[in-house]
Amino acid sequence: MVMSILVLGGAGYIGSHMVRKLLDENEDVVVIDNLSNGHVKAIDKRAFFIKGDIRDKDILKLVFGNFKIDTVFHFCADMQIPESLKFPNKYFDNNVYGLIALIDVMKDFKIDKLIFSSSAAVYGIPKKSPILENSDKNPINPYGLTKLMMEQIMSWDGAAYGINWVSFRYFNVAGAQLDSSIGEAHSPESHLIPIVLEAAAHKRDYVSMCGNDYQTRDGYNIRDYVHILDLVEAHFLGLKYLRTGGNSDVFNIGSKKGYSVKEIVNAIKERTGIDFKVVDAPRRGGDPDELVADSTKIRRILGWNPKYSDLNSIIDSSWSWLRKNPNGFKK
Rank of each mutant, 00 (worst) to 15 (best):
K90M: 13
S181M: 03
C76Y: 06
Y123A: 02
R271Y: 09
V250Y: 13
H191F: 10
K137H: 03
G273I: 10
P188K: 11
K307W: 00
F329S: 04
P88G: 12
K137E: 02
L85S: 09
V279C: 06
T146I: 02
L239E: 03
E290A: 11
G303I: 02
N164A: 07
D58S: 14
L145K: 02
F251W: 09
G38I: 02
D28R: 13
R299T: 00
E151Q: 03
M79E: 11
P282I: 08
Q177A: 14
D33V: 05
S129Q: 11
V261Y: 09
T272R: 14
I253K: 10
Y97L: 10
E151G: 02
P282K: 11
F49I: 05
S295K: 01
V19I: 07
F67H: 15
R204P: 10
N312Y: 11
A199S: 05
A176W: 05
D249E: 15
K127D: 12
S260F: 13
D136A: 05
F49N: 05
V31I: 06
F87N: 15
I100W: 09
V19C: 08
F73C: 05
D33C: 08
K51W: 01
P130L: 11
Y161M: 06
Y123S: 02
L6I: 09
L114G: 04
E198C: 08
E25K: 15
H235I: 00
M3W: 12
N94L: 11
K240R: 13
E263Q: 15
A120D: 08
A176G: 07
A160S: 08
I253V: 12
M150W: 01
W165Y: 15
M154P: 01
N312H: 12
K68I: 03
G273F: 07
